[in-house]
């Protein structure tokens, strides 16, 4: 029983408490169109959980559980196992949704366990590149050079000193049938990938780039634009990897310099002030070029 894309299905009711322009809210709304209504959601602690579930209100039109921060993959695995044991798994998609903190940092172990054990679960990481819910603290997924409240740019600091941990590649190392990246800048691509994933048996992982208005510090009307700039510069590669082989990439038609992406967000503003920042921007350009080469983003 294949799950079909259901563009009319509003799995996330309006009236939730997300910030205007929230990339994660866009992601969730699109994800649920890709899964359809026969879906059970396990959600990690984080922005999405907070803005969708202020008791007694609940924005989810699908069965939903929020348990803890780091155990979303395990809870989803339990849901899948329970359904299997009861003979009810057929036709029900089990989807885990967690942020970058809940995935790249504190939830990485349970994610790895779930993927390795081969559960029929789709895990979606919405990547807004910091702990936004608690006030924009750095995560392992925060990009190099970004200022956050715990990696602030200062007299001797450029902001985040480390390179973004790329969880999609870690997921792929588990020999799972489907890994993909997507972006809220490309809604149809995201919906299609989610739908493709839920129709594949076994563990699936999708990492969705999801800009955050207060965290990245840009006008709320620019979410999609910024999401697309990340892709067009090569900083956010979009691809599918099936059984360990890259099977599709979103090609960049005209490569844009990383400055265009960086200068659109206040979290990188300090890089445009001095020589030191200039060097950091050069490093970031190298990272984008490396992505373009590694994933074959340009012909």
């Amino acid at each position: 029983m294949a799950s079909k894309v259901d563009m009319d299905f509003e799995g996330l009711a309006s009236g939730h408490r997300a910030c205007a322009g929230c990339g994660a809210a866009i992601a969730v709304r699109l994800i649920l169109k890709g899964t359809g209504k026969n879906t059970i959601i396990a959600n990690a602690t984080g922005c999405v959980e907070v803005f969708t579930t202020p008791y007694p209100e609940c924005a989810w039109n699908v069965p939903y559980v929020h348990s803890l921060f780091e155990n979303t993959a395990a809870v989803a695995a339990g849901i899948e196992a329970g359904l299997k044991a009861l003979g009810k798994k057929e036709g029900i998609n089990v989807v885990a949704i967690a942020g970058d903190g809940g995935t790249a940092d504190i939830g990485l172990q349970s994610l790895s366990g779930m993927l390795e054990r081969g559960h029929d679960v789709l895990y979606i990481m919405y990547d807004n590149e910091a702990y936004m819910n608690t006030g924009i603290q750095r995560s392992a997924s925060t990009p190099y050079g970004a200022t956050t409240t715990t990696s602030p740019a200062g007299k001797v600091s450029i902001g985040q000193e480390t390179r973004k941990k790329f969880v999609a590649e870690i997921a792929a190392a588990h020999h799972i049938p489907y890994v993909a990246t997507a972006s809220v800048g490309y809604p149809r691509d995201l919906i299609n990938k989610v739908n493709k994933a839920v129709n594949i048996k076994g563990p699936k992982f999708i990492q969705v780039h999801a800009p955050c208005v207060p965290g990245w510090n840009y006008p709320e009307s620019k979410t999609v634009e910024i999401a697309r700039l990340a892709v067009e510069t090569g900083l956010w590669p979009i691809f599918e990897m099936e059984n360990g082989v890259i099977t599709s990439v979103r090609k960049i038609k005209e490569k844009k310099p990383v400055e265009e992406y960086l200068k659109a967000q206040r979290r990188f503003a300090h890089l445009f002030k001095d020589e030191r920042g200039k060097k950091v921007i050069e490093e970031i350009q190298k990272l984008a070029d490396e992505n373009i080469k590694r994933y074959g983003l340009m012909d």
């Binding site: 059970i40 396990a42 559980v65 348990s67 803890l68 780091e70 155990n71 993959a73 395990a74 809870v75 989803a76 695995a77 339990g78 849901i79 899948e80 196992a81 329970g82 359904l83 044991a85 009861l86 009810k88 172990q109 349970s110 790895s112 366990g113 779930m114 390795e116």
Partner: peptide, 16 residues
């Protein structure tokens, strides 16, 4: 892979 996940799996299973 851990006791944390063991109880989390039990939780998910119980919920369905």
């Amino acid at each position: 892979e851990s006791e944390h996940s063991a109880m989390s799996v039990c939780l998910g299973a119980s919920l369905v």
